[in-house]
Nucleic acid binder design. Structure first.
Length: 270
DNA sequence: CGAAAAACCTGGCAGC
DNA sequence: TGCTGCCAGGTTTTTC
């Protein structure tokens, strides 16, 4: 489900828990992408959430005992906030972080998401090899162009590889390429500096716009406060196979690249 | 080694 | 009403 804008939206909805104490952790199913360790509860209960942050598509809870929870929503995960006295149990609720008045519930039908607890986030295996944040200055045309030089794959796969830049998934990869008029099938190596400038600028622009409207809800993404994301209505190509290109009117094509549906306009993107 | 394919899961939907 | 096959916002593991 969630790419960077959806994770950022989720983070913002739970930011109010900063400074609050996790009174209790309940785990209904430890079998996520990796098994949630047995000591997860003992390491996180009775700890304050000193800060919350996002790195790539991960949400990180920094706790008062200097441990951190690393949470990934996978393909279908979501968080929701509930009052402690509301005891609705929804299918696929796996973990509850219970605070004084409210709780954060992690729900994930496909269980591709994960929860880890660690004493060093930066050195954690899931974090250490991640590329630059797309909204940071490290993600710029010059660096991106340099990385493209070493690549042997197509630009769409390159964009989705979290070692090159983080946070961009299947939707925003197609959308960024449309906005920069670059075909997803082009070899990354084939891009010149001007292409990279447009692509980097487009990526930043789209992610910012998507964050501003709460991300993209295709079917089942909701922020932790229950609201959907409205970027779906701004999508130019994703999910629009054989519909008209909003720029030139030609038909939008769907191709499969690395087993992922990819949408583009053959006449606008070369 | 890097790139492509398969794998991990469940649910929804189209087609028969 | 099934049942089957395919598709889904991600990332690791396996294979080539």
């Amino acid at each position: 489900m969630p790419e960077l804008p959806e994770v950022e939206t989720t983070l913002r909805a739970i930011e109010k828990f900063q400074g609050s104490k996790i009174q209790k952790v309940k785990i209904y199913n430890r079998n996520l992408r990796w098994k949630v360790v047995d000591c997860f509860e003992s390491l996180s209960q009775k700890q304050f959430v000193e800060s919350l942050e996002r790195r790539a598509k991960y949400i990180i809870f920094n706790l008062s005992n200097n441990k951190s929870i690393i949470l990934h929503l996978g393909m279908s995960g979501s968080l929701r906030i509930a009052d402690n006295n509301e005891n609705f149990f929804i299918k696929h609720d796996h973990v509850e972080l219970i605070f004084d008045e409210q709780k954060i519930i992690y729900n994930d039908p496909r269980r591709f998401g994960s929860m880890h607890i660690t004493s060093n986030v930066q050195k954690h295996k899931l974090i250490k090899d991640l590329g630059p944040e797309p909204l940071s200055k490290k993600f710029n045309a010059k660096n991106f162009y340099k990385a493209c030089r070493y690549s042997k794959t197509n630009i769409k796969s390159f964009l989705m590889n979290q070692k090159n830049v983080v946070g961009i998934g299947n939707i925003y990869a197609s959308e960024s390429l449309f906005l920069s008029s670059i075909s997803p099938l082009r070899d990354a190596q084939d891009l010149d500096l001007e292409d990279c400038k447009r692509l980097v600028a487009s990526g930043k622009k789209i992610l910012k716009k998507a964050i501003a409207v709460g991300g993209t809800t295709l079917k089942d993404f909701y922020s932790a406060d229950g609201s959907p994301g409205y970027f779906k209505f701004k999508l130019n190509v994703y999910g629009r196979e054989s519909e008209d290109c909003k720029k030139c009117g030609e038909s939008i094509y769907k191709v499969v690249i690395n087993q992922r549906a990819t949408f583009y306009c053959k006449s606008c993107q070369t």
